[in-house]
């Protein structure tokens, strides 16, 4: 029963990792951009949430509805002003520009908020649990996190496959030049994709801030968890990404149960094992 609990916790944390991964996967899918600053943007969203909560004293989880639009607008601007200039055949510019952005965001946060760790207190909901059976119980907050991940992925999936904007994004991803021939403005579509990505980042950032302590240096490891979830799940498949996040979360939970020093290592080793034995991921997208 103790192990069942460990695995259950791991699955629920996997929802958070899937949230880290979804925004990353989305912009890679649409414009082949790997945003090294993705993790730092998650941490930035956590600090924006902190500001919202301290300034307006709304409940942290409701702050999502403030932070998400702010981050989406920032994402659209970032794409139009910065990333659109870097897109092309050469992969170096987007990579290095996002790497530079990562260092800039970390140090701006350090300058404004210092290196002290912060946390958003969500009140009673943090300790509330839902009993399942036989003494097994899950926290309301982790459950909420997982439900949010599933809902966001379902919504994105619906958008991509049933709405005109999703069709446009898929078309641009397939062939950006022909998409322009259809009258699409790719720079705008890429802006929309980044806005969506950062809206998801905002949700991830708020949950990050409510769940545990955070500080400006936390970004790179969040990027890595998200990246690992994407690769484990298989590129181009959002449900696979959710599965990847869950596998990562469970691996870390099992590792931590064996020895606290093994928590992170266990996750990385599962990722490397997938890379070694199934480099296309566990649930790759079936093409055509």
């Amino acid at each position: 029963m103790e192990w069942a609990n460990v695995i259950l916790q791991g699955i629920l944390v996997g929802g958070l990792y899937a949230l880290f991964a979804t925004g990353l996967s989305l912009i890679f899918g649409v414009m082949r951009l790997v945003n090294i600053a993705h993790g730092d943007l998650i941490v930035l969203a956590a600090y924006v949430a902190l500001l919202c909560v301290t300034q307006t004293s709304i409940h942290p989880l409701l702050a999502i509805f403030l932070v998400a639009p702010v981050m989406a607008v920032a994402g659209y601007g970032l794409q139009r002003i910065l990333f659109n200039r870097t897109l092309g055949a050469d992969l170096l510019p987007p990579l290095l520009v996002s790497f530079g952005l990562s260092v800039i965001i970390q140090n701006v946060l350090l300058q404004i908020f210092t290196a002290d760790s912060r946390k958003l207190s969500a009140g009673a909901i943090e300790t509330a649990t839902v009993p399942i059976f036989n003494g097994l119980a899950v926290g309301v907050l982790p459950l909420l996190m997982f439900v949010a991940a599933v809902a966001i992925i379902a919504a994105l999936q619906f958008m991509f496959y049933s709405l005109p904007i999703g069709r446009a994004l898929r078309a641009t991803s397939d062939d950006p030049e022909v998409a322009r021939l259809m009258g699409y403005d790719n720079r705008h579509l890429f802006g929309v994709a980044m806005a969506l990505s950062l809206a998801v980042v905002a949700v991830a950032g708020v949950f990050l801030a409510v769940r545990a302590n955070f500080d400006p240096a936390l970004g790179p490891s969040r990027l890595i968890y998200g990246f690992e979830a994407v690769i484990i799940g298989g590129l181009g498949n959002l449900w696979g990404t959710l599965a990847g996040g869950v596998i990562l979360g469970v691996a870390q939970a099992i590792g931590a149960k064996i020895d606290p020093g093994w928590q992170l290592l266990a996750g990385h080793l599962v990722f490397l094992a997938v890379l070694a034995f199934r480099p296309e991921g566990l649930f790759p997208k079936v093409d055509g």
Binding site: R167, R170, A171, S173, D174, D175, V178, A179, D287, G288
Partner: peptide, 8 residues
Amino acid sequence: GRRLFRSL
């Protein structure tokens, strides 16, 4: 070369 959108 037609260049249809492959995933559509």
